[in-house]
Write a protein that binds this DNA or RNA. Sequence first.
RNA 1: GCCCGUGUAGCUCAGUCGGCAGAGCACUUCCUUGGUAAGGAAGAGGCCGUCGGUUCGAUUCCGACCGCGGGCUCCA
Length: 640
Amino acid sequence: MATVVLPSGELVEVRGGDLLAVLTERGETAAAVVVDGQLRDLRDPLPPAGEARVVGLDHPAALDVLRHTASHILAHAVTRLYPGAKLAIGPAIDDGFYYDFRFPEPVNRDDLPRIEAEMRKIIAENLPIARVWLGRAEAEALLAERGEVYKLELLREIPDEQISFYRQGEFLDLCRGPHLPATGLARHVALLDVAGAYWRGDPSRDMLTRIYGTAFPTAEALAEHLKWREEARKRDHRILGPALDLFSIQNETIGAGLVLWHPKGARVRHEIETFWKGEHYNAGYQLVASPHIGRARLWETSGHLDFYKDGMYAPMDIEGQEFYLKPMNCPFHIAIYKTHTRSYRDLPIRYAELGTVYRFERSGVLHGLLRVRGFTQDDAHIICRPDQIEDEVLACLDLTLRILGAFGFRDYKVALSVRDPEHRERYIGSDAMWDEAEQSLVAALERKGLPHTRMEGEAVFYGPKIDLHVLDSLKRAWQLTTIQFDFNEPERFDMAYIGDDGQAHRPYMVHRALLGSLERFFGILIEHYGGAFPAWLAPVQAVVLPVTEAEVPYAEGVTNELRAAGIRAEAWTKERKTLRWLIREAQVQKVPYMLVCGAREAAGGVVAVRLRTGEDLGPQPVSAVVSRIRDAVSSRGTAL
RNA sequence: GCCCGUGUAGCUCAGUCGGCAGAGCACUUCCUUGGUAAGGAAGAGGCCGUCGGUUCGAUUCCGACCGCGGGCUCCA
């Protein structure tokens, strides 16, 4: 006898542990039951004691169960349609599920509707889903008979003697569960994509075919998700970038992963850089600049030729000396530091640079602006005393939030990466340094009120770090900021400062990038704003549109006035086009302000203002337009 | 690198079951003087990704290569 809490909050007594029977009797449907914090099947025998809470399909905890069951329905459909297909794994993932198969024939996106139709049949059949326990030998014989080589491999790694399988109709799959009680509950499913995936992510093993899908408790939630995907697709910076004439990547002429910034993209970049530089000077940074190549000995000293050679391009021979294209800026900044003997009074020193680096990335991973081979980091190195590190990290976070906030990023997720406690020998630097650095990171995050997730073993070998992810307007997370301690290079370059004791001491060095790289950040910004940049970033802020040729001189005069006021304005007068055409063109180009000049406006010394939003502000004096745009620019907001 | 898909005009895409290559947009010229998301006409524009094979003949069929897109552990 057990007491169970229903989704409604009602309590029921369950005898003999058959919870599903009780629910069926009451005419209730549910997804699973949480017993002592653990999700379990409704069909599992209930423990005599302990808190049990039934969760409905719409409960967040049930989402994974729903999607896991959907992945089984997918596998079921595949085994019906493709006899001989081998099953691998099929987990629920962040916003859906996938299942990996080895198909007897190639399967592509065009096959998805057919598979999805079969899934709908299985859902309509509303097959009960039941757990089946098999002994190890029995399980092995079963899987061997079916030729399920991947499942056999998984089975060998399961320590238990009783092996859990799930059955729905004629389909049986090795699975730890839990699952929904019947296939009919997974009604709102969709298959999305097909892709290749290595068995266990290992490039030396079989290439499987992965089918991605998603499932939601309601038709509305599914429709909303599909709409969201569509919206994300429309914002793809690789489409918008060339369409808005912002940038191009030309593999044949320039090279893969190398970006050409067109005038409009370069203008946005200029605005970002100008803002960035100002904020850095205000925050006590000194801007420096360094070359694109350096001698091999520099990279030997830094250690990059030891641990980063795979990411570097081949050396070039210059008058018998080997030079390398730089993958990072740090050695140059350190070299600047070392040009003087530094006193403890000089610290902290903060060197910042928009430094362009080149890194080798395999062609398959290149992706628009988000993964490139040549990019400009918004890099800085903070060199300081141990007693300064916490304040420095805090100041860094302040600067980060101020700068990211200006771009409309106000939701953050922070990860703190620390050593793997099991393998301290893999890391450089003393325990005391690691502890001190980690404490400063945690203290700074706490003082800033930023919750963080601690990631054991995620630190790089040379120091702990904070990574900051932002959520964009579609709630997608992008990793931008990284703040990391470096215990390696100060040692290798023998960096020092003279303390108040007259002795040389090793400084701490913090390596940080706030935006990451300008290329990647620009790509993210394009998607965040869907190409419709706020007034302060818009490459063209206003276009002046004459209605007829007679107003061209007036339009040019207005344009000059705007330009004199520091507004990026263009008169669209080169060619006689209808106003309708000009407006459409301005909308497509996502220009924030459209200033129409017809006979009426010219006579009255005003312009008719149309916003990118479609809003018509009617006739306005040019001075009013100027102050409106100036306000929008100085607020850095999205309001026009 | 690997799996699947894909490559035709500057862009978006038709098409050729093997026989001189098509549209819309953009571009050039002309007509139109227009009021808030495309006014009309004409013209120009092509190594049909590259190399090889089959064939009287290949953009089309076959093979290799190159480029691009999706993806490559969030473990039964």
